[in-house]
Simulated assay, not measured.
Amino acid sequence: MSITQKPAVSLANLSFTWPDGTPVFRHLTATFEAGRTGLIGANGTGKTTLLRIVAGELSPSSGGFTSVGSVSYLPQHLILDTTTTVAELLGVQQRLIALRAIESGDVSATHFDVL
């Protein structure tokens, strides 16, 4: 990471404990650069809990974190919605519609703006 580039996510002395008193992690300090990042570890070590905290779904017990830009994660368990297309799930539906329109001869500037 260059000196002028800020980390996308920075964890500072982050801890999380479940309401029943079970600790997940304590005093976690780390930085992650922008871009896709994968967390690897054994089941039950707190990977998903950490991602849920950074995504704003859970609050840490102590410590804190900062993030630059948006942070999201792909959950382990997805609810299948059979009415949603793959293009919609990936967020490219409008681009595909514009591309198909251009390919069929429609040269409207609106389609090019979408792409």
Rank of each mutant, 00 (worst) to 15 (best):
S72K: 12
I102C: 05
R52Y: 03
K47N: 02
S15M: 05
G44C: 04
A87H: 11
T48I: 03
S72Y: 12
I97A: 11
H27N: 12
L58P: 06
P60F: 05
F32N: 05
T31I: 03
F16Q: 07
Q76K: 13
G46A: 07
Q93I: 00
G91M: 13
S67K: 12
R52H: 05
I79Y: 09
A30R: 07
P75I: 02
F32E: 09
L99V: 15
R95T: 13
T22P: 01
I53W: 12
A30Q: 11
T17N: 08
G35L: 13
P23G: 07
S62R: 10
L39Y: 12
P23N: 09
T45S: 05
T22Y: 06
P60R: 09
P60Y: 03
I40A: 11
G46M: 06
P75V: 03
I97T: 13
A30G: 02
T83S: 15
G21F: 14
T48E: 03
G21P: 11
L74C: 12
L99R: 15
I40P: 00
A42F: 08
F65M: 04
V54Y: 05
S59G: 14
S15G: 05
E57K: 09
V71F: 12
A101Q: 08
D20R: 06
A87T: 10
G46C: 02
A101T: 11
G21D: 14
P60C: 08
T49E: 06
Q93W: 07
A55H: 01
V86N: 04
T17G: 04
S70T: 11
F65G: 06
T22L: 07
D20S: 11
E103T: 11
L11H: 04
A87R: 15
L58H: 10
P75C: 03
R95E: 06
V92W: 07
D20C: 05
R26K: 04
E88I: 03
S59R: 15
L99I: 15
V92Y: 06
G105F: 05
D106W: 01
L51G: 01
E57A: 14
T83G: 14
A98K: 13
T85G: 15
L51K: 01
S108H: 08
G63I: 01
G69K: 12
P75N: 04
Y73R: 01
P19R: 09
A109I: 00
I97D: 04
A42E: 08
R26I: 00
W18F: 10
V107Q: 15
G21K: 08
K47V: 00
A55M: 08
T37P: 00
L78A: 12
S70L: 11
N13Y: 09
G21H: 12
Q76W: 07
G105M: 02
S70A: 08
L90Y: 06
